[in-house]
Simulated assay, not measured.
Amino acid sequence: MLAEGQRAEATIDLAALRGNLAALRERVVSADLMAVVKADAYGHGALPCALEALAAGVGWLGVATPEEALALRAAGIAPEQARILCWLWTPGGPWAQALRAGVDISVSGQWALDELLAAVRVTGVPARVHLKADTGLGRNGAQPHDWPDLVDAALRAQAAGLLTVVGLWSHFAAADEPGHPSIQAQQDAFATALAYAERAGVRPEVRHLANSPATLLLPGAHYDLVRTGLAMYGLSPVPQVGAPADFGLRPVMSLRARLALVKQVPGGHGVSYGHHYVTAGETTLGLVPIGYADGVPRHASGTAPVQIAGKWRTVAGRVAMDQFVVDLGGDTPPVGEEVLLFGNGERGEPTAEDWGRACGTISYEIVTRIGARVPRRYLGASGALR
């Protein structure tokens, strides 16, 4: 329930988060688990979710940017508590700060290795490096024709005491599309990349390929470590295969607001910008004081569902920056009535997956985009949250 006077709130069920991690761990008994907390833990709050993951026995955290990694270290997560892997670097990045903070660093090309080694020489801190192979995604990672040179250069630096190659990894393009031909092709390409590196003398601590969908569907891709992002937050990365409950998962985030106004209007009345919605007859409208500045997609206009007083309603007209309208069909709930945009679905409410379908996107985007001016309230903490 929203506190009195509160406009909107995202509630984060940390007990559900721990339950999801336990369910995922059951699927990967032969591999370690990485909790991916990039993008503020997919909108759920990086530090609270990281602490709960560590309390649940997870030893690896994954982030995209060095700033995310450094923020976790600055918040008190020490190297002896968790390895933090950071994989999205740009020239001139904070290599030295990351080395001093004990951050594991992904390297995808010679330029990155050169900049990293320059920082190692300045700081005197040897690097922990994960070499990334592009096995077919076409984003980060070394192409097969560049892989031998990158591996050999890293091994020369390792022999000089400048770094240790602790990881070899890649990322799937379509693990969320069972049967896609790229899946087997990438597994084969990764096996080839591993074979070269290991013949050359790399003895990695971890080999990792599996993201959330591969964790759920491709046990042969688990290797030594799986990187769980969306599934950790209780959303299905493969909704065409199964809902969260089918995998033992429970959505962690719920988003609520309050009705700021309820009013009667005549038929033929335009609603919101552009009058893309016009009332069919006399009705009541409810004003929901949350909009695209809070992360409600503008693509939700006229399509996305909410639950008010136990009934599903649809966004009427365009979502504005700070508010949107629903047609209440003549019902007159009181001003201040709770509006449940999405939750875990257990009370019949819409889910983030419902919102993703309505907006022509994926549930990842729905939860990740919820903005900073929506307060987060954490429920079910284990005591790790400090």
Rank of each mutant, 00 (worst) to 15 (best):
G43E: 07
E338A: 14
L209S: 13
R376F: 05
A304K: 02
V202R: 05
G59I: 00
I84E: 15
N140D: 12
V151E: 02
A185G: 08
L385A: 04
R73G: 05
G360S: 12
F190T: 10
T11L: 11
G291I: 07
G310R: 11
L113V: 08
G295C: 05
L131H: 06
G201C: 03
R27M: 08
S272Q: 12
K38Q: 11
G242D: 11
L230W: 05
G242C: 13
E198L: 11
V166S: 13
R203N: 08
A64I: 03
G291F: 10
P148M: 02
G329V: 00
E282F: 01
A210F: 07
G5N: 04
E115G: 14
N20I: 03
E282K: 02
R227V: 09
A175N: 06
L385V: 14
R18E: 07
G360Y: 03
P213T: 15
P297G: 04
A41K: 07
D40V: 09
L137Q: 12
T164E: 12
L131V: 04
L217H: 07
Q110C: 02
R7M: 11
E9Y: 00
I370Y: 15
A221R: 13
Q264T: 13
N344G: 11
L2Y: 07
A8S: 15
H269R: 11
G102Q: 12
Y277E: 02
G360W: 06
V29E: 15
P91H: 04
V265T: 04
S301P: 06
V339C: 07
A69S: 08
A159Q: 12
A118K: 12
H130P: 07
A174R: 08
E9S: 04
D152W: 13
Q187S: 12
D40S: 05
V315Q: 11
G124I: 06
T361V: 04
D294C: 10
H269S: 14
G109M: 09
N140P: 00
V252E: 10
L116I: 00
P178N: 10
G348D: 09
M321V: 02
H208S: 13
T303Y: 03
R376T: 06
H145I: 00
F172G: 15
A8Q: 04
A8G: 09
G360E: 02
R128P: 00
E346Y: 02
W312C: 01
G267R: 05
P181A: 06
S170Y: 05
I105R: 13
A16E: 03
E205G: 01
A78L: 14
W89E: 06
A157T: 10
V339P: 14
A153G: 11
A78F: 00
G201Y: 01
R377K: 10
V103F: 12
R318D: 14
L14W: 08
A118S: 11
V107D: 06
L255C: 09
H275W: 13
A41M: 07
V226P: 05
A56K: 00
M34L: 10
V226A: 03
E68Y: 02
A69Q: 04
V367T: 15
N20M: 13
L47W: 05
H145N: 01
Q6R: 13
